[in-house]
Amino acid sequence: MISRMIQLSEYAVTVEFGDTIDLPTNELVLTFTGAVDQAGIPGLVEVVPTYRSATVYFDARLTDAITVMKDLRALTATTTSAPSRPPITHTIPVWYGGSAGPDLADVARQAGLTPLEAGALHASVTYRVFMLGFSPGFPYLGPVPARIATPRLPTPRRQVAAGSVGIAGTQTGIYPQASPGGWRIIGRTPVLLFSLHRPKPFLLAPGDQVRFVPIEEEVFKELSGDQA
């Protein structure tokens, strides 16, 4: 189960399982990533799984692309889309709308919903963590219910608050830190997705599941206070 293998650089090979965002492709990527993690390939540095491919970084002083590609080809032959483990589900409280979600009203209007309904719809499904990227701990989640799937802002914001929950097409995500960003911001969570002050700095991992639970502003403030 493999579409192609490409050399990204002298020290990195990308194994591509497809070119779309879908569950079976991502399952293949993560199963393969787990297999590479376990395989003990000489010179391996790290594996970066994304929606539809896994990039394998190696130390070019210890091995070379041809050798690594041979090992990877053998691993892909045995990669199936069976999930490697039952997914961990995280419950993440979100304060939808208000000053926490400046774009919720627009998202709701385009969907013909009230802001409250749009928030409830966003929180009505269980999302998959397809990958992490952009910044430390930023999860790419999906798929968003079609009705509220809204494209990115035409011009990104200079500053998005830490914990902001955004929509970009059928993807939804959470900004772990304050940063510039172009996703439509519909709410904010008090949960820290990335913290160096705990044994596991990253809350989420690819393959996990996320459920959002709407909370009121007061609860958000209370929970935020707890972490201060």
Binding site: L8, S9, A12, T14, E16, D19, T20, I21, V48, T50, Y51, R52, S53, T55, Y57, M131, G133, Y140
Partner: peptide, 10 residues
């Protein structure tokens, strides 16, 4: 493209 890994030099 559907987002995937990039590296220094890309």
């Amino acid at each position: 493209i559907v987002s995937e890994a990039v590296c220094a030099g890309s």
